[in-house]
Design a protein around this nucleic acid. Structure first.
Lengths: 302, 302
DNA sequence: TCAATAGTGTCTATTAGACAGTATACC
DNA sequence: GGTATACTGTCTAATAGACACTATTGA
């Protein structure tokens, strides 16, 4: 190998250099992963004819120790030096949901100096989408108390101030997380500053009732990403069971996008992404609906 | 404050807990930032009539020590415990380009266990876009030898294998980085596995001539992101000088997207994003072109 | 029968692609 | 005048939105 021959200023070869390398001389941050685990669940029917409404859910854990003891946080944990961050994220996912084959995507790495009162902690956030049908019992039967929260996202204020050569656009987002046992609220300010050719986006937790750390920021960010990606990718199918109706699929799009869609246009849009089966729903109280499955090869026609 | 009253299982209040917290008991990874600094530069004209071609450039640094001594790497450095990762990225950007007001965006955090032979290092990559006119001399006059490389991205192979309930799509990307002093090549394999409702994307450096670490992966990822975002955002303007012609803007789009665009459609597309001035180019050897500036408020009509 | 959803046909508005044709400086 | 680019007009194709209309079940 040629690399044996190269010597640095201290006259060391690469092997010698690595042997002498002392990683401990610099102070280092801790690294954690935080998981945004989303699912969509059916609420109970109002009457026998109506379809059941769907709602977007997020998994949170009640903190059993300081800091933020008693508050709710995203599931997560430290990344050990012997595992990749993806592995750490998968491990957390498995611990909390007992599912290991699932859609997971890295979102953003949060690196503010004082985001954790214990020590310097950098956290890498991941989004996971799970099919609630595949979940069954889990979430709640862990030592850590994990619960699904109904998640509402609402822009409550938008403000735009014009600068000499740009503007500041400020948005207040209200996050509401609730279930049978608790209701949590947080307000996140998202501020976009455009000055000349520089753009900066900054998120701040204005107010948080019961949500630990900077997790409201992570939640806000994840929802924006989810809303965005559902429009131009097929991630929504990760929230669906094996077989589903187009109406159910549309409901999932609607609950995430938080607006109603027209059935005709929606069906055209998803036509290539699904494969028709010859099965139908039953006992619906109205016309039965054809069941479909995801078509993994929809993107590049084959 | 209420939080003083809450005691954990050891009977400690939050303040007591934090005082006793010892962050040093766990082994921790190091964290670095790596910067993908892009610009677009003019090549010299072939003849007095023709427009000068543009080319996409990436800034690399020659490594002066092990590991990968003598090879080329992305500018970057360790994140200190006293600065946020954004601050570390800005610091690197400032060191390398001497510019501090610039477009910068976090891309992805790379967390494989053995990506660095020294020790466990997690690296957060950032993309920065700079206007080459604002650069002037810089890049080259630092102690570290930083140079701009002409960057070519080419998909040399695409393969799709069908599985029982999904497929594997494999893409080989050839990266070519060159300037007057050196030519570097790397091949990155991008493998997308869709199985059932699980999707996984994996990148591997198949082959690398002269590019250090897993940086070919980071470069490949950044170009994909850049190509993607230029289509639906206004980031391209960060590569433009204060005043520019629509033809120049189109050239920038073309060099990044690596395909020719039709002028009429392009002009329609960017019409709202620019503000006309009453100035024109001079001495062009052909019809002069109107100069435009960026319109920061294009998005939400005001 | 009727409430509620499933599913289709079609008109319209908007947008992207194609390309011809006109305009204008500088050598 | 000729070359190379600047810029516009318009036809066409593709797509998204709107909405009316038909179909089908279980109670």
């Amino acid at each position: 190998m040629e690399k044996e021959l190269i010597r640095n200023k201290q006259g060391l070869t690469e092997d010698e250099f690595l042997q002498e390398y002392d990683a401990s001389i610099y102070e280092r941050p801790s690294v954690t992963v935080d998981m945004l685990i989303f699912t969509v669940m059916n609420e109970k029917k109002e009457n026998y004819r109506k379809l059941s409404e769907k709602s977007l859910k997020l998994l949170l854990i009640k903190r059993g120790d300081h800091p933020y003891m008693g508050q709710w946080a995203l599931p997560g944990g430290f990344v050990s030096v012997k595992e990749s961050i993806d592995e750490a994220a998968l491990r957390e996912l498995k611990t909390e949901t007992n599912i290991d084959s699932i859609y997971m995507e890295q979102l953003y790495t949060w690196g503010e100096v004082n985001r954790d009162p214990r020590t310097r902690i950098i956290s890498c956030s991941y989004m996971a989408l799970v099919d609630s049908a595949a979940l069954d019992i889990k979430a709640g039967d862990d030592a850590a108390e994990a619960f699904w929260f109904d998640l509402k996202y609402k822009v409550v204020q938008e403000k735009k101030s014009i600068l000499e050569n740009g503007f500041i656009s400020e948005k207040l987002v209200l996050l509401n997380l609730s279930n049978e046992i608790e209701t949590l609220n947080a307000t996140v300010k998202v501020e976009e500053t455009v000055e000349g050719r520089t753009r900066r986006i900054e998120r701040d937790v204005v107010d948080s009732k019961g949500i630990a750390f900077d997790h409201p920021k992570m939640i806000e960010y994840a929802i924006e990403r989810l809303k965005n990606k559902i429009e131009y990718t097929d991630i929504a199918f990760n929230l669906m069971p094996e077989l589903f109706t187009l109406s159910e699929l549309q409901q999932v799009y609607e609950v995430i996008l938080d607006r109603e869609l027209l059935a005709a246009a929606f069906r055209r849009k998803v036509a290539d992404m699904v494969i028709e089966t010859n099965q139908f729903t039953k006992d619906a109280g109205h016309r039965p609906s054809k069941l479909y499955r995801f078509n993994p090869g929809w993107r590049n026609a084959f």
